[in-house]
Design a protein around this nucleic acid. Structure first.
Lengths: 133, 133
DNA sequence: CTGAATGCAAAGACTTTGCATCAGC
DNA sequence: GCTGATGCAAAGTCTTTGCATTCAG
């Protein structure tokens, strides 16, 4: 099936950014697309993102921003560490995560579809600042 | 520091449920507390939950309900598998998750504070139904 | 022609906030 | 009296939805 023009623009947006850093809220996607397609409406963005999520083209997750973030689904899975104090986001590539998911699938008879793990905590800088162990 | 009466009622609510199943949205907490403390206001619940989260008494996570869910922080960490098709929630206790978190902490110099992992996917029943591998 | 995608406007849901009041120390 | 907690009402965001229109096959 051919993608709608909006879907293509969304994919272009992701293509313009490094895979690991490209995670946008629906609102951010909207503000990026709007200048390229001035007639576009917010609801169209929400509907396109939902369609693409169902189709496995993008994944959605909660990074603690009060809004869902979407990113393109690529071959390389990666995960994020979000600092609750300074908001810094670190990207980690960790095969261990995939291994754990496979193990959980086996042990629980459950197909894990989450492919983007977001963990919250405190980054090194914030730990050094407030609580020098 | 002494807890406010609202905090105590919230803790009571969690005490009344098995630790593993007690995850409520702020709205659900409100509707549980309201009959016990009719004067209570929604904003008080939100403020109490935020305070308790900061104090490490409850943890917050996104279970795909469109609202944050809060649960009491206990000694035993547990995690949830949420079926995207039927909504079923499975609880898993998995030391592997804790081990992975510790490993991520070491490798990334980051203190992981997330202690409740939520993974989305398809449960056994839904897999059998729609896609008998 | 028919189903999917879109625009538009409105509504819905969750959450936050400013301000006044109240309670505890 | 001061600080934190609460009530109240309003606003702010994010997101969904109903309906009419347009687009593609």
């Amino acid at each position: 099936m051919k993608s709608s023009s909006v879907e293509q623009l969304i994919l272009d947006l992701y293509a313009q950014h490094s895979t690991e850093e490209a995670h946008f809220t629906a609102q951010e996607v909207y503000h990026h697309i709007k200048p390229r397609l001035p007639s576009v409406n917010q609801s169209t963005i929400y509907r396109a993102l939902e369609r693409m999520t169902r189709a496995g083209k993008v994944s959605v997750s909660d990074m603690g921003l009060g809004a869902a973030v979407y990113e393109a689904v690529g071959n390389e899975h990666h995960h994020h560490l979000v600092c609750q104090e300074c908001g810094r986001v670190q990207t980690i590539k960790d095969e261990s995560v995939g291994r754990l998911f496979r193990q959980i699938e086996r042990e629980n008879n459950f197909e894990v579809l989450t492919n983007h793990l977001v963990l919250f905590g405190r980054c090194h800088a914030c730990r050094s600042k407030s609580d020098p162990d």
